[in-house]
Amino acid sequence: MGNNQSGGPDARYGGPNDKAGLRRHRMMSETAKIAGQVLPNPDGGPPMIFDDGNEDKSGECPVVFRWSFTQNAQPRVVHIVGSWDNWQTRIPMVKSTNDFSTIIDLQPGQYEYKFQVDGSWVVDDNQGKAQDVHGNENNMINIQDSDFAVFEALDEDFQSSTAGEVLRGESESTKNHDTPNDRELEKLRSFTQEIPSMDMLRKAAGPPVIPPQLMQVLLNKETPESCDPNVLPEPNHVMLNHMYALSIKDSVMVLSSTQRYRKKFVTTLLYKPV
């Protein structure tokens, strides 16, 4: 909402509707030019945060206002003033490559507004226009709730999709090409304080199974009888630094572990009474 910062209200400003205001408008324009050359902020104080005085903002809609220009006629500064606050505040617009723009939260309804481009009041011919009771021409916009229905439509699409059904725990049996896998489901879930019910816990899968290569125990492999009984086959690297245990028999526990020493391997067996 930084775009809503402004120089603050000007008590002398009466709006562009009356002729006295027009005369004073010209005088203010010249004063603004002089002040702009000397000080970055004409009022001398810190910028004030825009506040339309409404405490309840739940029904407001964000509205984008844009002033476009061409490369050969780039204005230096653009402000927008509107009937949403009875023409009280000049809101500075942010310059971009091809335009000045700002976003203002407005309640649904009809509003009139005008642009001040480098100190001159201008009406954008490309946007809606209207005449007020005094015969002056302003831009006009009509804000409706239905303009923001697209977000609700997207939400409805998600709820009816396969991912939405899976998240709610429905349609356990049917699977199609849209069914998300575990990783995709993990992204869709959000963390809550809810404790899952016992039914959901029962559906959860068990711990992962042991990798199959770890089932090939080095000491269970046969070596030729004529060979030195202390020589073993070379182990797979994933078997290193694991501990294997033989079933306890006759009150004796046998543990083994395979370690690497430089380029060779040692499998140590420990016989221990229990």
Binding site: L219, L232, K263, K264, F265, T267, L269
Partner: peptide
């Protein structure tokens, strides 16, 4: 040292 050997303790 053998490439892979057994040590009983």
């Amino acid at each position: 040292m053998p490439s892979s050997s057994k040590m009983v303790v």
